[in-house]
Amino acid sequence: MFRAALVVCSALLLAGCTVTVGATPSLSQETVEQGISDTVLRMVGHRPEAVDCPDPLAAQPGNTARCVLTDGGKRYGVTATVTAVANGGADYRIQVDDQPLENPWFG
């Protein structure tokens, strides 16, 4: 159902993120989690049971965050990769693993 979908999401850096003077702007983990959930809704017609990202995603092209999506009682790894940053926003794509995670405690 979530087979390796490459999808481009947009998230505003000025909403739901942490921006500190002198530091790299980042997308909060909540912003990335919501973006993944919204993308899955658009792709398959329903939201996953949960999306968990351990850390914010630094808004620089090429940076990645590894998250876990739970749906139908199965957990899938998800990689979010920043593709562009411009005009106060960041674009990123997500890729969902082909297979569910083997061990529910260690992804």
Rank of each mutant, 00 (worst) to 15 (best):
D52K: 10
A80C: 15
Q29C: 10
G45Q: 01
T24S: 02
V96S: 09
T70Q: 01
N63V: 14
T70S: 02
E33N: 13
Q29Y: 11
V32S: 10
R75M: 12
E30F: 13
V85D: 08
Q34K: 10
R93S: 14
H46K: 10
K74L: 11
A11H: 06
T70C: 00
C17W: 09
G22A: 04
V85A: 11
D91L: 09
A65P: 06
M43P: 03
N63C: 15
P54L: 08
L57M: 12
A84D: 15
T18I: 11
D91M: 02
I36K: 08
A80L: 13
Q99M: 05
G72D: 07
A59D: 06
R93L: 13
K74F: 09
T81F: 05
A4E: 09
T20M: 04
L13W: 04
G62L: 09
D91Y: 03
R47Y: 04
L57P: 12
D98N: 00
D55Y: 15
D38K: 14
P61Q: 11
S26K: 10
Q99W: 01
V7S: 06
A86W: 08
A5R: 06
A4H: 07
A80H: 12
V51N: 13
S28Y: 01
Q60M: 14
A65D: 13
V44C: 07
T79M: 03
V68H: 03
A58P: 15
A50C: 04
A84R: 15
V19E: 04
V85I: 08
G16I: 05
G73M: 00
T31N: 05
F2N: 02
R42V: 09
C53N: 05
G62N: 10
A5K: 05
Q95P: 04
V51S: 15
Q99N: 04
Q95T: 15
P48E: 11
A5G: 11
T18W: 09
C53K: 06
T79V: 07
I36A: 10
P54A: 14
D71C: 00
R47L: 01
A23T: 01
D55F: 15
Y76G: 06
D38F: 09
M43R: 14
S10T: 12
A5D: 09
A80Y: 14
E30R: 14
G62E: 11
V96N: 07
V68L: 02
C9V: 14
A80N: 11
N63P: 12
S10N: 14
T79F: 00
D98H: 00
V32W: 09
F106L: 10
L101R: 01
M1W: 02
P100G: 04
G89W: 01
L6M: 10
Q99P: 00
K74N: 10
V68D: 03
K74A: 11
P61R: 14
T70G: 00
R42Q: 12
T31G: 00
A80I: 12
T18V: 15
L69T: 03
A90G: 04
D71T: 02
L13A: 02
W105A: 01
I94Q: 02
L14C: 10
P100Y: 04
K74W: 12
W105T: 02
A15H: 05
G107K: 05
G77K: 07
A59W: 08
M1N: 05
V40M: 15
P100C: 07
T83H: 15
G16W: 04
D38P: 10
P48W: 06
I36L: 14
G88H: 07
R66D: 02
L12W: 08
T81N: 08
P25E: 00
